[in-house]
Amino acid sequence: MTDTKPRIAIIPGDPSGIGPELIARLLNEDGVTDAADIVLVGDGHVWEQGAAQSGLPVALAEIGEDAAGTAEGVNWLPMETIAPDDVKVAEVTVEGGTCSLRCLDKALDLAQAGKVDGVLFGPFNKAALTSAGLNAEDEHRYMARYLGFTGYHSEINVLDDLMTTRVTSHIGLREVAERISAEAVEKAIGLAEDTLKRAGKDRPHIAVAALNPHAGDNGKFGREEIDILQPVVEAAQAKQKNVTGPWPSDTVFLKAKRGEVDAVVTMYHDQGQIAIKLMGFERGVTVAGGLPIPVATPAHGTAFDIAGQQQANVGATLQAFNLLVRMARNHRAARAAA
C-alpha cells in the first residue's frame, strides 16, 4: 500500500439481503482496487454466496486477524459469525443481525487501531440488528457508543455531489418544531461543512431549509424562521461561512438539483430524504457524519424482495465506495500529519 492509497474494510451487511451480491459486484467494477486496498471482513461462505448470487468471482486471499499481511488489492480477514445453514435469504433472522454486528465491530476495531482508513458496509436490516442486541436507535448511535465517541454525530445523506444533514431525525413529526433550536441548527450546518471538507470541498455552499411553508411567510405560518433560522444563518455569514437561507423547502432542492449548493440542512427526516430519493434512489449514499473514522453505506435497504435473484444494482454501493475513498484518503493524510 502506498502512502496515499487508502485501505478500506468492507463488510457484507445482513447476509440475508443483497449486501453480499452488491459487494461482489463492487469488487468487479473497474478501478476499485486501483483506488483503494480492500480488507473483506466476514465469513468465507457469505462472500462465496455473494459471488454465486452475482455470477462474478470474489478472490479470498486470507490475512491475519489484526490485518497483518495485508497486500495490495483484495484481502480477506476470516470470521465465523454465522453457520451456512443459518443464512436464510430474504428473511429477518437473529443470526443475520448477529453476523452484521460482529462484522461491524471487527471493522471498527481495525479502524480504531489504524489498520484501515475507512469502513464500507452493505445494507443492514434494522429488525435483525435489534433482535441481535443493537440496543440503540440506529447503527449510527451504535457505532458512536462502540467507539466511545461522545461528540455530535448524525446520519448524512449524499447524492452525487450533494449532501443533506438533519436538525432532527428519527422522531415523530409532532416533536419536530420543539426540537428546532439555534444550537441544533448550528451543529447540522457544522456537520455538513466539516464532512464536505473531509471529502475535499474547501468552501462548501450550505443552504438551510425552512421549517414552515413559504419559509413562514413573514411569521404567518410560524416564527421558527424569524426567531431561530435567520439569526443562525446571519451568525454563520458573519464568520465568513458560505451559508444561505432559510429557503422554502419546496424550492431549495431545485437549487440543489441545479448544482447551486453543496449541501442542504433539513429540519426533519423526510424533508431531505424524499427529495434525495426522487432525484436518484439508485445512487444515494449514507455517511456516518461526525464519527472519528469515515464510514459509508448505500442509502437503500436490504431489498429482500430481490435478494438472491441477481438483480441488485451496484450503483449506490459504488458511489458510497468512491466517496469513502476520498474521505479515507484525507483521513489517512490527517492522521499521518498529526
Rank of each mutant, 00 (worst) to 15 (best):
M1G: 10
R7S: 12
A9M: 13
I10R: 03
G19I: 03
P20I: 08
A24T: 12
L27V: 02
N28Q: 07
N28G: 12
E29W: 03
G31E: 10
V32D: 10
V32M: 13
I38Y: 02
V41I: 13
H45N: 08
V46Q: 07
Q49G: 08
Q49I: 06
G50W: 05
A52Y: 03
G55R: 03
L56G: 07
V58A: 07
A59E: 15
A61Q: 14
A61E: 14
E62V: 14
A68E: 15
A71H: 10
E72W: 00
L77N: 02
E80S: 14
E80R: 10
T81N: 15
P84K: 07
P84D: 10
K88L: 13
K88P: 01
K88H: 11
V92H: 08
T93N: 10
G97Q: 06
G97K: 04
S100R: 09
L108W: 01
K115C: 03
V119F: 04
A127H: 08
A127Q: 14
L129S: 02
G133A: 12
G133E: 08
N135C: 06
H140L: 15
H140Q: 11
Y142N: 09
Y142R: 13
A144Y: 05
Y146C: 08
L147C: 07
L147P: 05
L147D: 02
T150I: 09
V158T: 07
T164K: 05
V167N: 01
V167T: 03
H170Y: 10
E183L: 14
V185K: 04
K187R: 15
K187S: 14
K187F: 10
L191T: 03
L196H: 01
L196N: 06
K197H: 13
R198C: 12
A199T: 11
G200E: 14
R203Q: 15
R203T: 15
P204C: 05
H205C: 09
A207N: 08
A207Q: 01
A210F: 00
N212H: 10
K220P: 00
F221L: 15
G222Q: 08
I226Y: 04
D227L: 10
L229I: 06
Q230V: 06
P231Y: 04
V232G: 00
A235W: 00
K239P: 05
T244K: 00
G245W: 00
G245Q: 01
G259Q: 07
V265W: 02
V265S: 06
M267K: 06
M267H: 02
Q271W: 13
I274H: 11
K277E: 09
R283C: 00
G289F: 05
G289E: 05
G290A: 11
G290H: 09
L291I: 05
I293Y: 02
A296Y: 02
P298G: 12
A307T: 09
G308Q: 02
Q310T: 03
Q310K: 15
Q311W: 03
N313I: 12
V314P: 07
L318I: 14
F321W: 12
A328M: 06
N330W: 00
R332K: 15
A333E: 13
A334W: 07
A336Q: 15
A338F: 08
